[in-house]
Amino acid sequence: MSTIVRSIAGIGRRTLEGISRMGYATRFFIAALMRSGTAFRRFGLTIREIYFSGVLSLIIILVSGLFVGMVLALQGYETLQTYGSEEVLGVLVALSLVRELGPVVAALLFASRAGSAITAEIGLMKATEQLAAMEMMAVDPVARVVAPRFWAGVISMPLLAALFSAMGILGGYLVGVVLIGVDEGSFWSQMQAKVDFEEDILNGVIKSVVFGIAVTAIALFEGYDAPPTAEGVSGATTRTVVTSSLAILALDFVLTAFMFRGIS
């Protein structure tokens, strides 16, 4: 009997803890937005962070995009040729990438490459009292450290997703047209006829901006909230990757449900 009561109490406690953490995270996020002035007034700070989260993620994004596009073309061709409609291969590759795989896979890679790095860096800065030192020097760490990283992530993510999709389509072209021999003209023209700028490309970009916000905000909060010990920082880094991956997939479902509801 008492075990049941205790486990119910445990659920209650964890719920309350979760809610208070959510509240803390929201306040942190709002503070970061409110104190973003420095990130724009001294844009050099943000450029530096774009280098660390964007440029350093380029290799993994480009290579993954190329391979994902190549595999899509290979698999798509197998299925499409059964129906004799190989010429829509371009459409298949482009739509899968632009609508879904580009934003989602790029965001997952970004979370594990840049998100974890942000959490580890901020967590270490906290553990080694660098944030406290900054505060004692009358410099607001949220404005000086958090906000530039946030905006850098928000700027980098759509660019990375676009590069991922573009590389993927290039990969699909390589396999589909150059290797298998699908007609080049119909590959591109069918793609252009079926991929719409607003419905597909713009919605993909919106998705990637939302994912960028989610991943960077989670990474920054986990780092800022990490216990100031080695275990604390490593645990926070793991949580960043897990939480932001789940957030990306859940948000993707919600956004897709909203965006592509009208057309079928």
Partner: peptide, 28 residues
């Protein structure tokens, strides 16, 4: 650092343009 970020941003916008013009049809 500035150079690399510049290359990154230009490449990213280039990819977006590629998607908009070559992959999609903007002539709605």
């Amino acid at each position: 650092l500035d150079l690399w970020v510049g290359i990154f941003v230009v490449a990213g916008i280039g990819a977006l343009m590629f998607l908009a013009l070559k992959v999609g049809s903007m002539n709605t």
